[in-house]
Simulated scan of single mutants.
Amino acid sequence: MNRFRVHHIMCTNLYRGYGYSGPFCENMTRMVTWLKDNPDEPLMLVTHPDEICKKCPNLVEDKYCVDSTNHVHDKDSALLEPLHLRENTVYTYNELKQHAKKYLTREVFENSCNNCEWYKQGLCRYDDFDYS
């Protein structure tokens, strides 16, 4: 079963093919395609590196992103309550998108994404989220 980070609910939905590196983009594209083709496959929701993170150049020791402050883990953890999700629980991609449709507010999105490079560049916007 694939692991799936909480904040990747937004990243996979808004992904446009930009990324840190060629290997990261290839892996992200593969995962986004798989999720869209298999929206009812089980995913284990986690707050630590998942299948998408495997090719991220910022992943250190398969444990955290960029540095030991583990700020991405904190981002994931902060999204659990407002999206009414539970860590280490199995969901489908469709179920996760339905949680986002019901509970993701502009404020939650902005608080989660405001430090992301793609958000800062205007590539990810709350108004572009696709709930279908």
Rank of each mutant, 00 (worst) to 15 (best):
K54M: 13
T47G: 07
A78S: 15
S112I: 02
T105C: 06
D50W: 06
E81I: 11
L45H: 03
P57F: 08
V46Q: 05
N94D: 10
C116T: 06
L79F: 00
L85Q: 02
L96N: 03
Q121W: 11
S112L: 04
V90R: 09
E95Y: 03
T69K: 12
A100F: 04
C65I: 10
M44N: 12
E87M: 03
K63N: 08
N111Q: 15
Y103N: 12
N94L: 02
L96T: 01
Q121T: 08
K55V: 02
H71V: 13
C113T: 04
K54C: 08
V108R: 06
D62W: 09
K120C: 06
F109R: 02
L85D: 03
K101H: 14
T92A: 02
C65K: 04
Y93E: 01
K54T: 14
H84A: 12
T47M: 07
E87I: 05
C116P: 01
Y103I: 04
V60T: 08
E81S: 14
D74Y: 09
P57T: 07
I52Q: 07
P42T: 12
N115P: 01
V72E: 04
E107S: 13
E107I: 09
P49R: 06
N115Q: 13
C113I: 03
A100Q: 00
N58S: 12
K102E: 15
N114R: 13
T89Y: 08
C56A: 02
K55R: 13
V108D: 07
D67V: 06
Q98L: 12
T89D: 04
N94R: 15
H99I: 05
H71S: 15
V46E: 05
C56D: 01
T69D: 12
N94T: 14
L83N: 05
T92M: 00
D50Q: 05
D76K: 00
H48F: 14
I52Y: 02
C65F: 10
L85K: 00
T92G: 01
T47W: 05
L80D: 00
V46F: 07
T92C: 03
L85A: 11
Y93I: 05
Y91M: 06
Y91F: 09
D74W: 09
E117C: 09
N94P: 00
Y64E: 07
L45R: 02
H48K: 13
H71G: 11
H84D: 11
S77A: 14
N115V: 08
C113F: 10
D74P: 02
H73E: 15
L43A: 01
D76Q: 06
D74R: 13
N114T: 10
S68T: 10
L80S: 06
E107H: 10
H48Q: 10
M44W: 09
H84V: 11
E61N: 15
L85R: 04
L79T: 00
V66F: 10
P82Q: 11
D67S: 10
E61K: 15
E61V: 09
C56G: 02
P57D: 10
K97G: 00
E61D: 15
Y119V: 08
H48E: 12
S77P: 01
T92W: 03
D67M: 04
A78R: 11
L79V: 00
V60I: 15
R86F: 11
L43T: 03
S77G: 08
D76M: 03
T92Y: 02
C65Y: 07
K75M: 14
V72Y: 09
E87L: 06
C116F: 04
N115K: 12
